[in-house]
Design a protein around this nucleic acid. Structure first.
Length: 481
RNA sequence: GCUCCCUUCGUCUAGCGGUCCAGGACGCCGCCCUCUCAAGGCGGAAACACGAGUUCGAUUCUCGUAGGGAGCGCCA
């Protein structure tokens, strides 16, 4: 295939909106392929559609790619900056008799399409200007490529296998519009040729463009690149992945608290596999990725599995990364990360119980700000009248501690349980609800360390009041006949 | 309509003619661990779309059928 020639891949998004999660997978595969083979990965912005392309979209794409770490070796190149080059190539084809001027009007073309459709045929250009005898000085002509009339184009797709197209099925496509601007299919070929792309890795919505592009390469006297068409990503319901399936904008995943390495891992495994391995570091992906393991059928995006993969990466991520992200999320949620324990401690306690960094931050609220309200269900089941004595004993035992660290705290809590002849759960749970406001938290010792001594004692006192008030209210209610 | 592509548990996938009464993972259910929640361990339910061939033998090869998808612009 690549006879020793260095691999050059590219990702070529058009900036008409945010960076779609499916596009990120395409970029990832192109990037991984280049990295795995020691090649070059190029970023090219296909902004020839001036109507729909925006700078905001360009920025969103660059930001998204930067976030996931898909760094380009060359580029970003902008297709609009290469217009002259495209025109020049088109006129060369014209001069060589490989293209011709088309004077057909819009109405004419539409009529042609309507007619073909009515006859149950594929709408295609019939080549009426190809002979060059329909010159009309009153219309600005477009340039059409003279596609070969017969024979076939064979695509040995690296993931789909051999695909054969009959040239008779292909019509003469416009390469230069009547306003002189190049069309997508032509720009792509000129750019891929100029940038010496060896492997075009893209979505399989492009397979039908491939034979035309190969014909253009040949007309340009350039050896076509190898092609790898990736199957689409569907939503959980099997239809094309879109907004109604949840987030498709890559940057939303950052806000939701996903780790870029987790997203990459999940996306890589969506349509590719390496034995039974599920969790990969980016380096492992680079080491193992290749196109021969890419599946040929569409895959459905599964948010639940993404969550699991993210959690696995949270458990493995460097502490430093998590500390920074936790701080970010807390601030986003309006909580001051300085108003509590060192973030590294919180990360250590919560990294095994968070599927996202957002969730980790939510679980951490009670260590950085006052509790607005106890979880009603947790309070009802654990802050019972019987818990009053327990809490009082805990306040006493914990209040006397000088060393506020995990071991002594647990010792004190165990001591209270023993003295009262209670199972640990009967002591730890009320304490947990009192201190965190919830029924679930890290082990009680760590939890109290995170809360700090002062907060802990204050919250036990408040819980005591809560129990008393509940008892009073119950008593009042009970006395009513 | 035409061209092209796809089809293994709900989902991601392993399987490249016999090792498959089909393996792993997510999710789901149960058990264990256990101060809660997780994490972890163990176990369970759950799939080769259908029909013909080829072959001693098909999940694996070929062809049909059905279902799904993509494309058919002077959009990208």
């Amino acid at each position: 295939m690549s006879h020793g020639s260095p691999v050059r891949t590219r990702f070529a998004p058009s900036p008409t909106g945010y960076l779609h999660i499916g596009s990120v997978r395409t970029a990832l595969y192109a990037w991984l392929y280049a990295r795995h083979h020691g090649g070059t990965y190029i970023l090219r912005i296909e902004d020839t559609d001036r109507e729909r392309s925006t700078q905001a979209a360009v920025d969103a794409i660059l930001e998204g790619l930067a976030w996931v770490g898909l760094d380009a070796d060359e580029g970003p190149f902008y297709q609009t900056q290469r217009l002259e080059r495209h025109r020049e190539a088109a006129h060369r084809l014209l001069a060589e008799g490989k293209a011709y001027r088309c004077y057909c009007t819009r109405e004419e073309l539409e009529a042609m399409r309507a007619e073909a459709l009515a006859k149950g045929q594929k709408p295609r250009y019939d080549g009426r200007c190809r002979a060059g005898d329909r010159v009309r000085p009153d219309v600005a002509p477009a340039l059409r490529f003279k596609n070969p009339l017969d024979g076939e184009v064979v695509v040995d797709d690296l993931v789909k296998g051999r695909i054969v197209f009959a040239n008779a099925e292909l019509d003469d496509l416009v390469i230069l519009r009547s306003d002189g601007t190049p069309t997508y299919n032509f720009s792509v070929v000129v750019d891929d040729a100029d940038m010496r792309i060896t492997h075009v890795i893209r979505g399989d919505d492009h397979v039908n463009n491939t034979p035309r592009q190969i014909n253009l390469f040949r007309a340009l006297d350039v050896e076509p690149p190898a092609y790898a068409h990736l199957p689409m990503i569907h939503g959980p319901d099997g239809t094309k992945l879109s907004k109604r399936h949840g987030a498709v904008n890559i940057l939303e995943y950052r806000e939701m608290g996903f780790l870029p390495q987790a997203l990459l891992n999940y996306l890589a495994r969506l349509g590719w596999s390496h034995g039974d391995q599920e969790i990969f570091s980016v380096d492992e992906l680079i080491e193992h990725f290749d196109l021969d393991r890419v599946s040929r059928s569409a895959a459905s995006f599964d948010p639940k599995k993404l969550l699991w993969v993210n959690q696995q990466h949270i458990m493995r991520a460097p502490e430093q990364q998590l500390v920074a992200l936790l701080a970010e999320q807390l601030e986003r949620q309006g909580v001051d990360p300085a108003n509590g324990p060192p973030l590294a401690l919180t990360v250590a306690a919560l990294r095994e119980r968070s599927q996202t960094m957002r969730e980790m931050a939510e679980q951490a609220h009670c260590y950085y700000q006052e509790i607005e309200q106890l979880d009603p269900k947790a309070a009802r089941t654990h802050l019972t009248p019987a818990a009053h004595g327990v809490l009082a004993a805990l306040a006493d035992a914990l209040g006397g501690l000088d060393d506020w660290s995990e071991a002594p705290i647990e010792q004190a809590v165990h001591g209270v349980a023993e003295r009262l002849g209670l199972k640990l759960g009967k002591v730890a749970q009320p304490l947990r609800v009192a201190v965190t406001g919830r029924a679930a938290s890290p082990p009680i010792g760590i939890t109290l360390v995170l809360a700090g001594k002062e907060r802990t004692l204050r919250r036990i006192a408040r819980a005591l009041e809560w129990v008393e008030r509940a008892a009073r209210e119950a008593g009042t209610a009970g006395s009513q006949p």
